[in-house]
Write a protein that binds this DNA or RNA. Sequence first.
RNA 1: CGGGGCGUGGCGCAGCCUGGUAGCGCACCUGCUUUGGGAGCAGGGCGUCGCUGGUUCAAAUCCAGUCGCCCCGACCA
Length: 565
Amino acid sequence: MTRLSNYLLPTEKEAPADAEAVSHRLMVRAGLVRQLGAGMWTYLPAGWRVHRRVEQIIREEMDAIGCHEMLMPVLQPAELWRTSGRYAIEELFKLQDRRGAEMVLAMSHEEALTFHMAREVRSYRDLPLMLYHFQVKERDEPRPRAGILRTREFIMKDAYSFDRDEESLAISYDAQTRAYDRIFDRSGLEWYSVESDVGMMGGFGAHEYMAPCAAGENDVALSGAGYAANVEVAAATPQPVVGMPGPLESPEAVETPGAQTIAEVTGQLGVPAGALIKALPILVADEEPLLVLVRGDHRLNEIKLANALGRPVRAAGEDELERLFRAPAGFIGPVGSHVPVLADEALKGQTGMVAGANDPERHLRGVEPGRDFEPRWADVRTVEAGDTCPAGAEIRIEPAIEVANIFKLGTRYSEPLGATYLDEGGNEQLVWMGSYGIGPARIAAAAVEQFADGQGISWPRAIAPFDIELVTLGKEGEEARQVADRLYEELAAEGAEVLYDDRDINPGGKFADAELLGCPLRLTVGKRGIESGEAEVQIRRGQRKSALALDGAAKAAVELWRGLP
RNA sequence: CGGGGCGUGGCGCAGCCUGGUAGCGCACCUGCUUUGGGAGCAGGGCGUCGCUGGUUCAAAUCCAGUCGCCCCGACCA
């Protein structure tokens, strides 16, 4: 029995001054969560109920595809992470025990589970396997933010698949995909899955599940034709440049004294930014200079560049510019470059372009890639709103929270940790792995973001802290109290999870708190309704009110609840 | 890692520039009234002013250091 008079639900009229994100403000105000430190959050009872409901949906769908729940430690030997090659990660918390033995706090559990699989799996007959757990992850985030959206400690459902080969991995991956689709459909979120970056550490296929909302940390490129990709990897046809200058027989120097930025050059020469070649000095693997070219109105996408090269990249520093590129900052250009040149596909076939002349006083115009210099070509620019997707529809870009990701790991962990099996022919083979994560807290936060209104939270019914909030306007001993007490029992008998506001405060305060907390249905029992034999029911989303006959009200309310989103 | 901001009762803030023994709203407690949209009146409780050191007769206020928290960017296996 959950009576508000005997429950910890500390609501606040005002949000903490430092809370910006809608979910951060509302979850604190509604009494769901409280902060303990930077990126460290406590779930109060109602908040934890939300988390557990999300967990339960995930649990049911994992179990349904033959993925089995287990539990692994957060505290782990450092040695394991040295073996996998992940010990150097800065986000990894490192510590020592009293004897000085080195330990880590796990930020995910690939090492631990692969370690076990390496010992327990021996034969092709033992595979495939899918396992998961809900466990705390610890990450020394450079910047925790937005309440429970990005924290240093959080609970993740992480599943891992173990297969004989790539084909079998594809089947496991498919099963997980189907389970994930069902999980997000059931959660009541607005969501979609997108292609994502596979990262530098191998892997060869990845999707992220995104929940669009203002507080989202990711930008997603979408089109009406169904294209959906994280801008980290999105590819599209660029918009044409209007007002391009005509071609020239050969590049021609023009005086552009001191013009260092795109704006200054376009201003002095009277050409659109898209007519310029932006030259970016890049260091590949911290040592090799590379001049990367993008159209003047485009932005370089370092992730796409790193993926195209298969090696990490970073912008060159000022001293490295002089030393390795032998060119002055701001005036660098591809014609006569001292270092290799890589050009973005958007520059292919372009004529009449303006490029730096490696000279502070002038630029070159009439430049043609392929004629005046020979670059390596790759798609390395950041997609923009208004570009065209591969199916021909216009791209829009919107922020979204990454609520889950699925990833084909391949043999990234089985190899260093020695997870192998013997095939039918008695040959030792590496196990093929996949990993599949979901952040329940992010699902909760995304739901708050997506469905909040001026009054507060409006939970999808599947993950609300309670199904129904029952408000009585009667005090101890009054009829409205006795009728509500009875209704509470009837609702419970119907299987509803009910929060009963039996506090002795003004009606306005109860209504305001109920709308702030956002349970999908509110039932109100007051003197006025009793006289006409009715209880009032309000659907939180949209705040539509109607009357239910007190006789049979519980059944009717639960029926109504079933039809809600 | 770069930039910016903030630490004064549970929450939101004022006071700091110009040093003189801490205040407002909400919340909380008691009583009476009120009871379908955050109610009224009266009374009351709660503060090492983040911490340490310095200047001074005197520090929330000035100086130095330090810790914590937030925001923007970078980063995010």
